[in-house]
Design a protein around this nucleic acid. Structure first.
Length: 199
DNA sequence: CTCTCGATGCGCT
DNA sequence: GCGCATCGAGAGA
């Protein structure tokens, strides 16, 4: 299937976050395809968004978000984990979409190995249902910070569109400021999401 | 299922 | 130093 275009990522960030649901995230690793359908995303709306790293400006670690849309912003957090974002909108916007969860589809055995917790096999619905988990499962590290998502290491393909009735919108997860905005999107009824919404 | 808590490196005040 | 766009172990229900 076709890779999502530069124009797709150049759209308004909330549109990108909504329409990334159901698309296929693909990682090409040592000649093998690892992939999963995106089930959960969050929009980070630029320097004025108090929850975004972009509030520290284009000279900070968030620099990739100020660059060309359709590139990766990968950062290291909690001393242990990576998180993966797609850069959105025009150059200079500082905006992006965090990919929070996927439903694994190809290369599941490899993902199990990359997650290597212990001897025990991880149940499939817990393999990639979180931003740190999916980066571990797809071997996404800081080495991929800034890479072009129209390149050959990491990209997103057109898959099955999610109808509006199946898309849900809530506050973002894991932030202390900015919870007043409904900038998290997920697929209703998916088992592959990171947190159950509490109403 | 739910909750609490510690691990662990680093960017920023 | 502090706080983090997180996660898994362990305890309790």
């Amino acid at each position: 299937m076709a890779k999502l275009s530069r124009d797709f990522y150049a759209q308004p960030t909330l549109e990108v976050a909504r329409h990334l649901l159901g698309q296929r995230l693909v990682r090409q690793l040592d000649g093998q395809r690892l992939s999963g359908l995106i089930t959960e995303t969050e929009a980070y709306m630029g320097p004025t968004d108090v929850a975004s790293h972009a509030k520290h400006g284009p000279a900070s670690r968030a620099a990739p978000m100020f660059g060309e849309p359709g590139h990766a912003y990968v950062y290291f957090t909690y001393g242990m984990y990576h998180c993966f974002n797609t850069v959105t909108e025009a150059v200079g916007s500082g905006t992006g979409v965090l990919i929070r969860a996927i439903e694994p589809t190809e290369g599941i055995a490899t993902m199990q190995r990359l997650r290597q917790l212990s001897e025990t096999v991880i149940p499939e619905h817990k393999l990639t249902n979180g931003p740190g988990k999916l980066c571990q499962a797809l071997a996404i590290t800081r080495e991929l910070n800034g890479v072009d998502l129209l390149g050959s290491e990491l990209w997103i393909e057109q898959a099955e569109p999610i109808v509006d009735e199946a898309a849900r919108q809530t506050a973002r997860v894991g932030i202390s400021q900015g919870r007043e905005h409904q900038w998290r999107f997920y697929i209703a009824n998916s088992r592959f999401i990171s947190a159950h919404p509490k109403y």
